[in-house]
Write a protein that binds this DNA or RNA. Structure first.
Length: 254
DNA sequence: ATGCGGACCTGTTAGC
DNA sequence: TGCTAACAGGTCCGCA
């Protein structure tokens, strides 16, 4: 999309996580895309006069298709490019978002308090230790809190805790600086491995080339309830934390 | 200030 | 086979 012009944006259903702003098309139509970026799980399209903010939620997908492709049921908006292609957003659950902002995205209320990017140096043991100091919440819930760790959802929170050998119910504030270091390294390694494998395709996710990811074949605990731990053979246990499925090995994680 | 549960949606699957 | 309930990759908000 970099360097292309947006002929127009067509919104067919404004009822996403937040209503798509009524004036968005007017702001965006005819804009030149300067750059496409990302912060946490928010996708940012720099249009010069402002930014489009996109989020895929849980079931959202973006695909590049020819302009003539007829939309189907859950195709809620199109970004029509001057090239003859369009970027189509599909999202059955409508947990995704399309917003417009004229302030710098880093100052936007949704991104203002996000933790540093997990693969950057600023996300380190020190940061994690400071953010969870004195907190009684389960460490897994801390990993799911994007003011503490950004870009990690349910799958990778489970996998990173296994890699760090930390029990997901451990009280966050009780982790030593050393264990914070182990956990930070585990988060970075988990994300890097997943990226290398092309991500995790359970149902909706496909890469920009249309190919599924393969990281789900490497899960150590996620969705492996009752199956033997790949390291020690103990059956993987499943519990619920914060209404999310949580998987761990009682043999390996303490 | 912290932490928990509820809310937003629809599609798929497990269980009866 | 058909119906129903539970659950799914996210994250904000309000209340205790």
């Amino acid at each position: 999309m970099d360097g292309q012009r947006i002929d127009k944006v067509v919104v067919r259903d404004r009822r996403l996580r937040w209503p798509v702003p009524k004036n968005l098309e007017g702001q965006v139509n005819g804009a030149l895309i300067r750059h496409v970026d990302r912060r946490g799980k928010y996708l940012l399209i720099d249009c010069g006069a402002g930014w489009l903010i996109l989020h895929l939620g849980m079931s959202g997908r973006l695909r590049v298709v020819p302009k003539t492709t007829p939309p189907s049921k859950h195709d809620h908006f199109d970004i029509i490019l001057s090239s003859g292609m369009l970027v189509r957003f599909t999202d059955p659950r409508r947990f995704g978002a399309l917003l417009w902002t004229t302030q710098h995205p880093s100052l936007h209320p949704l991104m203002r308090h996000l933790a540093p990017e997990p693969l950057e140096a600023a996300f380190d043991a020190d940061w994690l230790h400071k953010r969870i100091r004195g907190r009684s919440m389960a460490i897994k819930l801390a990993l799911m809190n994007n003011e503490i760790v950004t870009g990690v959802g349910n799958i990778y929170a489970n996998e990173a805790l296994f890699r760090a050998r930390i029990n997901p119910r451990t009280k966050a504030g009780r982790l030593s600086m050393e264990r914070c270091g182990t956990l930070v390294a585990a988060i970075k390694e988990t994300l890097q491995c997943a990226i290398e494998a092309g991500g995790s395709s359970l149902r909706d996710f496909f890469g920009t080339d249309g190919q599924p990811g393969y990281f789900q074949q490497q899960y150590m605990v996620y969705a492996r309830e009752g199956k033997p731990c790949r390291i020690c053979g103990t059956p993987v246990r499943s519990i619920r934390l914060g209404q999310r499925s949580t998987f761990y090995c009682t043999g390996c994680q303490h």
